[in-house]
Amino acid sequence: MTEPAARGFSRSREPAWVKWLLIGAVYLIVTVLIVVPVVQVFCIAFSAGIEMFIQKALVDHDSRHAMWMTFWVTLISVTINIFFGVALAWAVARFKFPGRTLLISMVDLPFAISPVAVGLMFMLLFGRQGFFGGWLDEWGIEIVFSTPGLILATTFVTLPFIARELIPVMEAIGPDEELAAITLGASGWQMFWMITIPNIRWALLYGIILCTARAMGEFGAVSVLSGKIAGLTETMPLRIDKLFNEHDEQGAFAIAAILTLFSLITLAAKALMEHWVLASIKKPDADEL
């Protein structure tokens, strides 16, 4: 975020027509690629009236269950990711150990691997014919086609999000304050709660927001693993796909509209946070926890 005041006098050196052409281009790009599709989602969702929308999205039992499912899967995988992100960032940003770079690179893997391949991997491990399939079956543990499978897949695809936000921030802040705390006799946990967490809170929150958005929308990996049992293992993106396949376009777009709304809320939360961060940088005292 750059404040206009911080820019200096000579920032816009291009002729005015170039400037306005470029600004026009930005408006065009954002309108065509982002605004119109979002508007269309809501247009179709509400094209049959608001009662229909409420009926399809909020009253229908299976749709409501899909929301419930998405909520739980997101909550649990984001929680796992918070612990993982903080732990990894602490290890990587505060210590040097062999294999450190390799570990950082490995955490980026889920960014690049196709979600379909992710689903396939877990199927190969935990499916009935998979490597652990027979053993799990003996003990009556269900992973694939059940909530744990959905959580595993979602956690996998969102693994880098929080860690990636935290590592650069922790590296930038440096260990001085924490070293001081330890030298002054604070216990490890005291230092962690009173120095580390307050220092990284914005990055952590930002990571959580990104992670939540991605977790809510995961489709490719969970579609291989879910079994699509209505009212049991269906998440919202899967339900969109299924309603669409069952000649219920209204229903599909109603749920799509809710997911779109969530992602817009996510963006708003992010923008609001950036605003607050700026404010807190200006007045550091006003922001004590």
Binding site: P37, V38, V41, I240, L264, L267, K270
Partner: peptide
Amino acid sequence: DSLIDLPFALPTAVAGLV
């Protein structure tokens, strides 16, 4: 500036459908 992140946040299935 905020809207640019929408493709990160919007579920891909929704994007494809629309």
